[in-house]
Nucleic acid binder design. Structure first.
Lengths: 216, 216
DNA sequence: AAACGACTGGGACACACGACCCAGTTCGGC
DNA sequence: GCCGAACTGGGTCGTGTGTCCCAGTCGTTT
């Protein structure tokens, strides 16, 4: 086959491994399956990587980095908080519906990391990057929607991530679209309830709910 | 070794498999590892089970049934809704803290089921049983606390399960106890906000928070 | 006590896997 | 055109796996 630089080969192998993992699961991502997906020989694999573990490790860090990039996706302010949150959730959910294997692969890789001693720190990093992304969205929403949050953004980010994880998990298990819709409605409501309009030109129609609980 | 009936052997193998899975993960639950844990020979394994898959399948159904039993645990009404929900969450979380491997094993088994064609239906069943359990708690709380819920119990159960899954996942990833505490506080608040006191002897001191959002 | 069937131990088989090796091929610089 | 280094194909090794087998042992029934 064609001649490719080791660097290109490494990234090709990472993508191939990801494809195999998404299609057949982590346990099926053997060196042979991966090189078959990438259409190269076993020797090429071991020329690019010292071991399978090294590849998997790179796959995971790649995935984490990618997630961080993806979640920098622009937030589209829709006037009120609830609508904005709801739209962002819908965008994520559409992605999930289109590529369930991908999110499933994320979960599996996370569990794989938890079971591998040298990779033990990665789940915390991966989860941290989710929270950072969520916090970024919440921060970005403040000036765009003319609000502040009644609790620390970090805390709200954690709530948002927990709900998103729960939503993902539930849908992966039962594939109930209608239930997912209702769940997203709730998430939008509960997040919107933490928004406080700042003085000045108040955004309209976002005070349907009273500031719940307050900063406790 | 001692002489044991095939039936006893089957359940012993299920428990052993569960122990191995919790300790080392699903991928490490080989026939040899399982029989070593159960302290019996390979022949005994294949006398009791036709194949490893048959065992794993039994492990999963066992786990689902067990979960259903566990979640019938009595709800301890603490006067107000928030306190009751918070205490129930804390009880679950304490269990999680004590045996993280156990919950981790549940997740892994779920993913294993998703990847195995004949087991594809199990995740939905497992998740359904979680929701049923949550719904049972919410139903039980109604007469005990003198409340009704402003939304269908099924829907609230789904929210509760999603939040619990998210909580579990987050804690497994970063082991942040303080953050888990704050998250549970939020869950208790948000669930309590769906409670409507019924006319009659109103429960005391549960109106610290205004009914948030209400029935939207 | 004899015989039957439930149960066990140890070993064997075929296969898939990760890792490795080495003789060849092709490319870039001289 | 040549040379050294980057790269490739095919094969091989040792190990771990699921499954199976069979000679043997023990309890139960008659």
């Amino acid at each position: 086959m064609a001649r490719v630089s080791a660097n290109d080969r490494r990234s090709a192998l990472v993508r191939a491994a990801l494809a195999v993992i998404a299609r057949d699961g982590v346990h099926a991502a053997t060196t042979r399956a991966i090189v078959a997906e990438a259409d190269m020989s076993l020797a090429s694999f071991h020329y690019a990587y010292r071991s399978r573990d090294e590849l998997i490790r790179e796959v995971i860090t790649f995935v984490v980095d990618q997630q961080e990039d993806v979640s920098r996706a622009a937030i589209a302010p829709l006037g009120d908080v609830r609508g904005t949150v709801r739209a962002a959730l819908q965008a994520y959910f559409d992605l999930l519906r289109e590529h369930p294997e991908r999110e499933q692969a994320m979960f599996e890789l996370m569990h794989y990391s938890m079971r591998t001693a040298e990779l033990g720190a990665l789940p915390a990093i991966q989860h941290g990057s989710y929270r950072t992304a969520a916090a970024g969205l919440l921060e970005a929403a403040m000036p765009l929607l003319g609000i502040t949050w009644s609790r620390p953004v970090d805390e709200l980010a954690r709530i948002l991530v927990a709900l998103t994880d729960g939503l993902t998990y539930a849908w992966l298990a039962d594939r109930d679209d209608a239930a997912a819709d209702r769940l997203m409605d709730y998430v939008a409501d509960t997040i919107a309830a933490f928004a406080i309009p700042v003085s000045g030109p108040a955004p309209v129609a976002s005070e349907r709910t009273l500031p719940q609980g307050g900063a406790q």
